[in-house]
Design a protein around this nucleic acid. Sequence first.
DNA 1: GATACCATTTTGGGATACCAAGCTGGTATC
DNA 2: GATACCAGCTTGGTATCCCAAAATGGTATC
Lengths: 238, 238
Amino acid sequence: MVGEPIASKNGQKSETAMSQMQNVEIGLREMILGLEVGPGERLTERWIESRFGASRTPVRAALLRLETEGLVCRDGRGWTVSPINLAELEQIAVYRETVEVAAVKLTCALEDRSAVDVIEAMLDSCDAGTPREEWHRVGMDFHIELARLSGNEFLFRAVRDAMTRLSRARWLEVRDEAALGRAWAEHHAILAAVRAGEADEAARRLSAHIVGSRDRLVTSLHNDRRGLRARGFAVVAA
Amino acid sequence: MVGEPIASKNGQKSETAMSQMQNVEIGLREMILGLEVGPGERLTERWIESRFGASRTPVRAALLRLETEGLVCRDGRGWTVSPINLAELEQIAVYRETVEVAAVKLTCALEDRSAVDVIEAMLDSCDAGTPREEWHRVGMDFHIELARLSGNEFLFRAVRDAMTRLSRARWLEVRDEAALGRAWAEHHAILAAVRAGEADEAARRLSAHIVGSRDRLVTSLHNDRRGLRARGFAVVAA
DNA sequence: GATACCATTTTGGGATACCAAGCTGGTATC
DNA sequence: GATACCAGCTTGGTATCCCAAAATGGTATC
């Protein structure tokens, strides 16, 4: 056994009412998104098995799930943590611009748009003392929760899945304070337009935000790809 | 053993070089999309196991895959063929309009749009003597292949997955000759606009086509839902 | 020293055994 | 007759075992 087995063997429930499969799925997702296992790294089912104290059946189920999320991919026979793919990041940006703009237009057409206040409060919960992980999480949740307001389950899932795929890359991005402040200002401006029901204005601002975000992200990773490779992270060029 | 086992036991390869999991996944998907198992029907892993002559390991893998496609869903402990959900169909229509329009606009911006000819040939391969299954398949592939031309993998997958979810409903739709002819005319008109590079015109026609298609689909299923329930198909109202 | 070849190990795919939870049908009690 | 209760069966969740293929490493040959 390597690391800390989370649940004991032979059908024993872990202290929470969570199945082994959920245990492995959630734990492995966190390890991948938190870069505890690097992009491009090989994964063996047996290693995951011992790492989480589960048997191969739930391990394989979790891998199949994570494969559909794009976090792991098949490597012939065998599994690999998906590399960071710059070309893919650009395509995802186009995709999320499409679905996020559609979602925000739907939201602007709603009579009751008061739910934007909850999102605004979420943004405001970040200040100078907030750890970087939290800024990162809130920056993603802003887009996910904004899409949820549309009420369209498929647009929401599309945004959530796209943000999941972008998560590691955004984490690796070299961001300065100024860029972060600008992003937050854009977030607020988007919410203001949604609150006012100005669909075109909200769409324009959101679109510009996403495109700018993409450009900074791809540029940052491209410039730093030597450093990323030095850390053992596979980065596929655009 | 019920039905016709496709592969023999104990690691024996079937005649094609296909894994058991792919066997089960593809076979079960065809059974669901072909309505050989009705929407809302309960599925047991053991039944699938004997139906396809595979053990539970590949069966579970296939079920997990089909769950992400929305073709089966969990029913507490246990599996169910996803019911036809009219509210979901309407949401999917909004979603696919969004992504298909975005894809076709990207395609119109390409220099080389000659690939539309292949799609046009596909449409023209259907005539009065073509079986209904083929019309159905080509009607879906038109949208999928059109999205593929955009070159954006995520828009393409979104359209493909949406069409998969719509497949059973479209098959159940009561369509007359006139509606089919109108759909084909709209398909040709969309292609003509794409060929000419007229993005706005193509988007307008595609959008109208999808909205009209949605209205006819939902109306048809809503009117016929008594008959569908009589066939044992679960239809959830909007 | 390079290379071809073979034994060993590793690994994913699949099959099966076992378990606990839940459903079912029957029975006993009132 | 209705209901509470219990035994047994079904079923998904999990662990484990087996297998074939691929990777690995060492050795013999040139």
